[in-house]
Amino acid sequence: MDLKNNEPAPSELNRLVHLAPLEKVLNIARAHSLWPMQFGLACCAIEALMGTNGPRYDLSRFGYEVMRTSPRQADVMVVAGTITYKAAPFILRLWEQMSEPKWCIAVGSCAISGGPFVDSYYVVPGAKELIPVDVYVPGCPPRPDAVIDGFLRLKNKVLNPKVVEG
């Protein structure tokens, strides 16, 4: 067997051995087991975090049910609810405490752009003012199905990181 002369490899070798860059393998591992950080602010947290983890819309069939309370151990920050100016400093601090690689999902219209409270004197118009957001899930509150769809899009983004830039 002489691969340098472009002889075709035997079929067992094709089937059993895969060559890929290390990053792609790590991405597969990361995408199938994202650990969300347990961090609910307002009404969307009841639907997005608790309803999605509940028995009917089961997030654990995708592998994402491990909700870690400590930011050091989490991958994904799910911002669900309205952000106020009093809460903004510690949200930023939690984001900075998370270790790389990390992603963010903004759930609900308050986290996307301020929602129905955008005219208020104390509401930050969207999570994107503070931290870089990867996936937006609109709704007020969005159904748990929509939140699962958001997680699956994030999985797609993790597996193909160049999709967005292209």
Binding site: L41, T82, T84, K86, A87, F117, S120, Y121, Y122, V123
Partner: peptide
């Protein structure tokens, strides 16, 4: 007060 959205003023 971390979730004070100012509903009374709105």
């Amino acid at each position: 007060g971390y979730l004070h959205r100012g509903v009374e003023k709105l």
